[in-house]
């Protein structure tokens, strides 16, 4: 079959709602875009362990410590699952990590902000995981089988993370004046980065019709952002916290909130590497990788010896 016919069959398959599987024919642009998206997602899970891991040793009680450990373990699991899913497209994890450590690959810009107080752990679960779920539930309907199935599973766990984050914020908001102030401060610092993490507005990021048609991208950034805001603002009000957007209004007719102006300059600066923690996050990941080199070599050497011994026996 020539390329034009294969493309036609590929597009017909997607239009019918069937999934594309690793061994199916796919256009190079489709494969490249998926590698980019999926590896960014995997890297985000792994880099995201750092700001949250930052508070495991200082969690305020044993229950919160156990929950946070379980949550971060989930995130690490998502990373592993997603790296494996990217490998189905013909790129191995070593190469993907090399791209991360050399700054060639991106990860979610939100993890370049620091976690300064315990309330930030609540804010991340509530806002960051909350925003991510909006995006990921859409991606679960995407056309690439391994990614869409990964999303189904990941979204289930992220829903728990989202609720535990909100529950942390709720406890703080109902706590002492100091705890409530801590919660409001975390919301003040994480709100805009969370709103921005869903990507540039549609006029700055024209959606490729092709990616929508191929069901790689399912919804526009602004549409996802609107759902996130509509869901989150009442949650903040419910626990007596205030979203730091003085210009936000609620449109009775449409039933949606309209947000104030987003500082996209900050967003693009952080993407470029100028966020508060970009350098630290990359350094931590690269160092872990370098310090682990002898461990991986030893494991490989030992495995080779085992195979040899078995062959002799």
């Amino acid at each position: 079959m020539d390329d034009a016919k294969q493309l036609e069959a590929f597009e017909a398959k997607i239009a019918s709602g069937a999934k594309i599987e690793p061994k199916d024919w796919m256009p190079e642009a489709y494969r490249k875009q998926l590698i980019r998206m999926m590896s960014q997602h995997a890297h985000s899970e792994i880099v995201g362990m750092l700001p949250e891991g930052n508070w495991i040793t200082r969690a305020p009680n044993l229950r919160r410590k156990a929950i946070l450990l379980a949550k971060v373990q989930d995130e690490a699991g998502h990373g592993l699952y997603l790296y494996s899913a990217v490998e189905t497209l013909g790129v191995d994890r070593t190469e993907l990590l090399y791209q991360l450590h050399t700054g060639k690959a991106k990860y979610s810009s939100i993890f370049n902000y620091p976690t300064l107080t315990w309330a930030d752990i609540g804010a991340i679960g509530w806002l960051v995981d909350g925003a991510a779920i909006m995006n990921q539930t859409a991606l679960a309907r995407g056309s690439y089988g391994p990614y869409s199935r990964a999303m189904v599973r990941i979204c289930k766990e992220e829903s728990f993370h989202n609720r535990q984050g909100y529950e942390i914020m709720m406890s703080l908001a109902q706590g002492t004046p100091e705890q409530k102030a801590m919660a409001q401060d975390a919301l003040d610092r994480w709100w805009w980065p969370a709103v921005m993490m869903l990507g540039p507005s549609d006029d700055k990021s024209p959606n490729s019709d092709q990616l929508m048609k191929w069901k790689v991208k399912m919804e526009s950034n602004d549409a996802i952002r609107e759902r996130f805001i509509d869901r989150t603002v009442p949650q903040a009000e419910f626990i007596g916290l205030k979203v730091p957007d003085a210009d936000m209004t609620f449109d009775e007719k449409t039933g949606h909130y309209t947000h104030g102006e987003i500082n996209w300059d900050e967003f693009f600066e952080v993407i470029k590497g100028n966020g508060p923690c970009n350098a630290k996050r990359l350094k931590d990941r690269s160092e872990a990788d370098k310090k682990g080199a002898w461990v991986r070599e030893a494991a490989t050497a030992y495995a080779a010896k085992q195979i040899k011994e078995r062959a002799i026996a």
Partner: peptide
């Protein structure tokens, strides 16, 4: 738990956090 995010390989990050959770 201090190893979280700094393990030599992702599988070990998962294992060490999991074991830390058992201990806690």
């Amino acid at each position: 738990s201090e190893w979280c995010g700094h393990g030599p390989i992702l599988e070990e990050d998962i294992a060490l956090i999991n074991i830390a959770l058992d201990f806690v």
